[in-house]
Computed example of a mutant assay.
Amino acid sequence: MIAPIRTPSQQLVTVFGGSGFVGRHVVQVLARRGYRIRVASRRPERAFFLQPLGTVGQIYAVQANLRDPGSVARAVAGADHVVNLVGILQESGRQSFDALQAKGPRLIAESASPAANLVHVSAIGADLRSQAAYGRTKAEGEAGLFAVRPDAVVLRPSLMFGAGDSFFTRFASLARLLPVLPLAGAETRLQPVFVCDVAEAIALAVDGKVPGGRIYEAGGPQISTLRDLVQYVLDITERRAVVLSLPKTLARMQGSALGLLDRITLGLLPDDLVMTRDQAIMLETDNVVSDAAIAEGRTLPGLGITPTAFEAIVPSYLVRFRRTGQFDLKRHSGPDDTLPFLSPDSTLENRAR
């Protein structure tokens, strides 16, 4: 007897880390497809803003902590699909790389139903031999996941961009404050990928349209050095600053000093200024889609997604950092002295969603 086809509205997706930068886009894409969504968050009250993205009762939040197996089991109970987006760039208290990135994926896999579809977001740069704890624990998490569920889908994105990101927005903010921008890994190559493209790839995996048991890599259409990307931010925001390339040793020392200062001040150091030694080490290696992934079709184009160029999106949310502001009359006035402008609902990012 053939099992009846179940519609998305009859299926439940648990999304760990659904209230974060990537998570909010994933939840929105899944909601538009009609899935019921359970957002698993350490602080569920921070996920309440997601509810208007769906119909009444379609999206709801539950408490779950990857350091608490019981809460994880409750979060995945009855779920047809499980998406793990949890990741951190620096450790804080008990929120460690080992607990969240190395052990968390396996815990989720062991707690979920064997019939559930598992999708895990890792990162380009995941490597068991990495000197950086971030890259090493990302790889350990993938290995633990596949040990339990060899049919899982793993997605490794490069640097992600979009409104509220921690890269373009960060440097635009720093350019307002600092006359010199010291860079670790200034010549390191990056392949920025639009967060909405990553969310679409995750949704395709939930739909069952992405073969499991493989690692997919997500990058944008352009490869640029860190220095070039920072200079792009300066050009867009019309700011002037000296971009200073730091030698590897000095970059690691800077990361150690800033990381220590952040701990000493109990996290009071502004986020834009925080950098750790681990992050400096990660910036010593190119963060681009591998030749093997391209050859084997384990990329966004291989999934039928055309990557979005950062030039098409970034200016729409960096305009507020311009020295003369978003509504400079001299800049925007045309022959008829009218003032064209982008409203929040007409930004390229919103049109892309």
Rank of each mutant, 00 (worst) to 15 (best):
L145E: 01
A64P: 03
L204I: 07
P307D: 11
Y35S: 03
A295N: 14
T7L: 08
V274I: 15
D165K: 02
R353D: 10
F146G: 01
V22E: 11
S245R: 07
L329M: 06
S130I: 09
P4T: 09
G78N: 07
V72W: 05
T14Y: 01
E110W: 03
A186L: 06
D328G: 05
T347V: 05
L159Y: 03
A133K: 15
T225R: 09
D228R: 08
V210E: 02
R322V: 05
P315A: 07
D228P: 01
S173H: 12
F49H: 15
I294W: 13
R320F: 03
R263T: 12
L226G: 02
Q95G: 14
Q51I: 07
G255H: 06
A352F: 12
H81N: 06
F161D: 04
P182M: 08
R149E: 02
V13A: 09
E110G: 01
Q191A: 12
P315M: 07
S224K: 11
A139H: 00
I59E: 00
L300P: 05
A175N: 09
P182T: 09
Q191C: 02
R353M: 12
G208I: 14
V154N: 03
P211V: 10
L260F: 15
L250V: 11
T14D: 00
D197Y: 15
G125W: 00
V26I: 07
I264R: 11
R67V: 01
L12I: 09
P114C: 09
C196D: 09
A61R: 00
L283K: 06
Q131K: 15
L145N: 02
P44L: 13
P301Q: 10
E142T: 05
K248T: 10
D197A: 14
G219M: 03
F167G: 04
G334V: 13
S245H: 07
I264T: 14
T347C: 09
S71H: 05
S333F: 13
N117Q: 15
T14N: 00
L177K: 14
P44F: 14
G144N: 13
A75V: 01
A205R: 01
L246Y: 12
V242E: 10
T169L: 05
A295H: 11
P4A: 12
A126W: 13
A186W: 09
I215C: 10
P69D: 08
E142W: 06
G220Q: 09
A241Q: 01
T299Y: 06
R277Y: 11
L244Y: 07
